[in-house]
Amino acid sequence: MKNTKMKAQRKKQHLSQTELAQKANVTRQTIGLIEAGEFNPSLKLCIAICHALNVTLDEIFWEDQDHELEN
């Protein structure tokens, strides 16, 4: 599943994938794969991304209850 919340927050802050990757200490490819839903990040990486974006885990990585019921 694509992580549209992370991508939207990154774009809202005018960050490229490369810039976010540098802040989270990962590669740009890792950020791209997470946004594309092709990589399931560890909790440690999720926390690093949230710190880099200055948001909570819930804001970026928590599924909406309504969305879970649809699947």
Rank of each mutant, 00 (worst) to 15 (best):
M1E: 02
M1N: 06
K2I: 07
K2C: 02
N3I: 05
N3L: 05
N3G: 11
T4H: 01
M6S: 05
A8H: 10
A8E: 12
A8S: 12
Q9L: 15
Q9D: 02
Q9F: 11
K11F: 06
K12A: 14
K12C: 04
K12H: 12
Q13L: 15
Q13Y: 11
Q13F: 12
Q13R: 13
H14E: 08
H14Y: 11
L15W: 01
L15C: 05
S16C: 06
S16W: 01
Q17I: 04
T18P: 01
E19V: 07
E19F: 07
E19I: 08
E19A: 15
E19N: 07
E19P: 04
L20C: 08
L20E: 00
A21F: 11
Q22R: 11
Q22V: 04
Q22N: 13
K23Y: 04
K23N: 06
A24P: 14
A24W: 11
A24N: 08
N25W: 04
N25V: 05
N25H: 15
N25C: 12
V26L: 00
V26S: 02
V26T: 09
T27Y: 03
R28V: 12
R28H: 06
Q29T: 14
Q29P: 00
Q29R: 08
Q29N: 09
T30I: 14
T30Q: 07
T30L: 10
T30K: 10
I31C: 03
I31Y: 00
I31D: 00
L33V: 02
L33A: 11
L33G: 01
L33N: 10
L33W: 00
I34K: 05
I34C: 02
A36E: 01
A36T: 04
A36Y: 01
A36F: 01
G37V: 04
G37I: 10
E38Q: 11
F39D: 01
F39A: 10
N40H: 08
N40V: 00
P41K: 01
S42R: 11
S42N: 10
S42H: 06
S42G: 14
L43P: 00
L43E: 01
L43M: 12
L43I: 13
K44H: 12
K44F: 06
K44Q: 13
K44M: 09
K44Y: 13
L45C: 02
L45T: 13
I47N: 12
I47P: 03
A48F: 06
I49F: 08
I49T: 00
I49Y: 09
I49D: 00
C50R: 10
C50H: 04
C50T: 02
C50V: 06
H51F: 10
A52P: 11
L53G: 06
L53T: 05
N54L: 05
N54F: 01
N54A: 13
N54G: 07
V55F: 08
V55N: 06
T56H: 13
L57I: 12
D58M: 05
D58F: 08
D58E: 14
E59D: 12
E59I: 04
F61T: 04
F61Y: 06
W62R: 15
W62C: 10
W62K: 15
W62I: 08
W62Q: 15
E63T: 11
D64L: 15
D64E: 14
Q65G: 02
Q65T: 07
Q65D: 09
D66W: 03
D66T: 10
D66R: 11
H67W: 09
H67F: 09
H67C: 03
H67A: 08
E68G: 02
E70G: 05
E70Y: 09
N71S: 09
